[in-house]
């Protein structure tokens, strides 16, 4: 399942629901992304996205993960809109019979979400607003797959 939403969500509750739906999978891996306050003066974060393309891109990523690894299921939830420091931005979860497949597929999904899903983050600090700049290492990470 993929979900793109403005509403906050409870990653623990989502993980329990996901795990209950893949009974017998044996291995469930999850990652939760949280708004960081690197500079110490973060007031919040604005996440813009491209409605329509976002859902397509996440659906294609999930389908690719399901095709490449032996997965029982994969979950992607990503928020947009205004978030405060330490709020949950997104999560992925993967379920498999095999630990390695679950870990690798989750890692793959995270690498691609970083630089191939149409989201743009803007940090709002006491000093003003700044778009988060993509890192070359995020682009390089895609070569692993």
């Amino acid at each position: 399942m993929i979900r793109v939403q403005a509403m906050p969500f409870d990653p623990g509750g989502e993980l329990n629901t996901f795990s209950a739906g893949v009974e017998g999978a044996g291995a469930v891996v999850s990652f939760t992304g949280i708004v960081r306050d690197v500079s110490g003066g973060l007031r919040g974060m604005e996440i813009e996205h491209y409605p329509g393309m976002t859902e397509k891109a996440l659906g294609a990523l999930r389908a690719e993960a399901l095709g490449r690894w032996d997965l029982a299921d994969a979950l992607i939830i990503h928020r947009f809109g205004r978030l405060e420091a330490y709020e949950v931005i997104m999560m992925v979860a993967t379920a498999s019979k095999h630990r390695k497949d679950a870990f690798e597929a989750a890692d793959f999904l995270m690498d691609y979400l970083k630089s191939r899903a149409p989201f743009w983050k803007k940090e709002v600090t006491e000093a003003g607003e700044d778009w988060v700049v993509s890192k070359a290492e995020d682009e390089d990470a895609l070569c692993r797959w």
Binding site: Y50, K114, S115, P118
Partner: peptide, 10 residues
């Protein structure tokens, strides 16, 4: 057609 800077998801 859509134009945008490199994406910063995740």
């Amino acid at each position: 057609v859509a134009f945008f800077p490199p994406m910063t998801g995740g």
